[in-house]
Design a protein around this nucleic acid. Sequence first.
DNA 1: AGGATTCGATCAATCGATTTAGCAGGCTCA
DNA 2: TGAGCCTGCTAAATCGATTGATCGAATCCT
Lengths: 352, 352
Amino acid sequence: MARVRISDVAAAAGVSTSTVSLVLNDRPGSRISEETRARVREAAAAVGYTPNSIARGLRMQRTRTLGLISDVIATTPFAGRMLAGAQDAAREHGHLIFLVNTDADPEVERDAIRALVDQQVDAMIYASMWHRVVETPDGLPERSVFLDCRPASGGHPAVVPDDLAGGRAAVRELVAAGHRRIAFADAEKVNPPVASGLRYQAYLEVLAEAGITPDPAWHIRGVDSTAASGRAATERFLDLPGDRRPTAIFCFNDRMAAGAYVAARHRGLEIPADLSVVGYDDQQLVAGELDPPLTTIALPHYEMGRWATEVALGAREPPASDQPYLMPCPIIRRDSVSSPPAAAANSSRRRA
Amino acid sequence: MARVRISDVAAAAGVSTSTVSLVLNDRPGSRISEETRARVREAAAAVGYTPNSIARGLRMQRTRTLGLISDVIATTPFAGRMLAGAQDAAREHGHLIFLVNTDADPEVERDAIRALVDQQVDAMIYASMWHRVVETPDGLPERSVFLDCRPASGGHPAVVPDDLAGGRAAVRELVAAGHRRIAFADAEKVNPPVASGLRYQAYLEVLAEAGITPDPAWHIRGVDSTAASGRAATERFLDLPGDRRPTAIFCFNDRMAAGAYVAARHRGLEIPADLSVVGYDDQQLVAGELDPPLTTIALPHYEMGRWATEVALGAREPPASDQPYLMPCPIIRRDSVSSPPAAAANSSRRRA
DNA sequence: AGGATTCGATCAATCGATTTAGCAGGCTCA
DNA sequence: TGAGCCTGCTAAATCGATTGATCGAATCCT
């Protein structure tokens, strides 16, 4: 039951191991007769030979192996899509992926990087579960790509979601439906504020381009970004006097949108008839199974995973600028947006 | 910038590579003076030496590497916990994990197994995203463990959730709250019916032990196991005449329970006052963010991932019986269960 | 004093592949 | 006919570690 080695093939074909290697790897420029080639290939197939990747890795100094190191990515529902993208790209290029989860523990991270470097991975992908700025960890090899995070000091290719464009799409969807009083249920403040900051910026931009003066009461930060926070923010929005009360809410993410649903329902408000809602993330189990299904902006995790892997493998050129590549976030239209209630539309028009 | 090799350490310490290896690996029985040991260790630290795992793997025939092969696990929200368990166990034992996702494609699976075997993984974990029976794939090495699935023909250790005990706990929770008319919103039929079959069996057992004769109308299978199916089933339950209408529903999973919530709400029913609901899976983003939070049975993914990895690494003995190890599923009590409405309790008592 | 031990460290083989230099034999051509 | 050139294949070095065999010097024992 021992593994078949190249020498077994050589013996079976009556040639040297050199010949077997030359033939099986189809090395151009090697002068082996067609007859011998056939014999070697038959022998290899007969004994069921597959090369030992470890031995080959040692000799070639290339392991066809990738390290994917992440904070808590693998334990979040997004992670799957990111990993799937990375996996698919890796498989297409004949690579295998080492997955390591550090749980954001710096010591675990350090050990993991070292272990992966010792494994001679051809490249490394440093992934985050949410779009943020990270310090480049020590020991990260030259061939590293940042996934869903931007290295504070640059120097490595990186890919992040285009939160600015995505945020614009979300708010424009509401403006296009006729809303004028649009709130933003924002997440907690983090530093530096990447996703949140960009989505807020997008919110302000689109309001400005629609000629709407934002009411400061329309922007509330949660203590976190859970449904509870979304609910709390929405309750405060709905407490606003009639002519300032939003007819639509852009939520930092789908979970907060789920909270907005709860708050609306508790007031007897129908979505979207009485209140339109747009989320962000397209978190399947939240957005898709809400009632009514939530219109949201998808985070392109699969595409980012793929991009990072292809760049890591040298199959795709990163942008020359040293700026992160911005992956588009498509809007997913479901049933949580409609035109504002007539009364609100009137009152808004009155105000304008 | 080239990697530091053992020979660099040897040169720096003025000894042979053998000595370095002996010292750094602390091989018992090797006779190296304490003075030389110190010199070697200093030299190693000074030049920043870490052994090349590939070279060591080739020589030792042990790579401290594990293959984790799964169908669609990495793209489901459970996956994270399973991976986290596997990761943690692997890290504790100094191992790295190759993660491969086959998307249930047999060809991809075959290639993946071969690639992992070629990488000389020390052991393999074959994981499924849901508890089911699988054929043992060709080429799987001796040292393989099945995770969240049972091999049809045995021969390998396996770990699955104890769906029978979990199902009993769920239904007993409802019985203990005083319910007598308890429905089971089941998933679609699959063959062989593992999770669904066991949970249904548990349902029947607990009803029997409570002296309740199950009404056949209380068991409905969905076309799948989504919220839509849960909603459809619940609507049919609620259409039952008053004295046969369930006061509590055990749902195959949390998504179906989310559907039950929607159906109840559309009838103006309060949960849990008018209808108690228990789910299964403890899918965080569903169960935890429903309103009211859902009482459910947790699937022990983390623990199973850990168990499988520890067995794969030989750090834990699998059961001698060749039967899958049954991992307990704890009940997570939240707010979706209360005693039945007074009227229903009366009518039920009348029937009894 | 001289053979046997012990001590401390090294030599060289090994893991399983890839790759370069080179060897033997046949052919060409002046 | 013999130098030069192909053709077809192989020997041996190499990647970077581990490890059983071995070796010189010091020590022990009678």
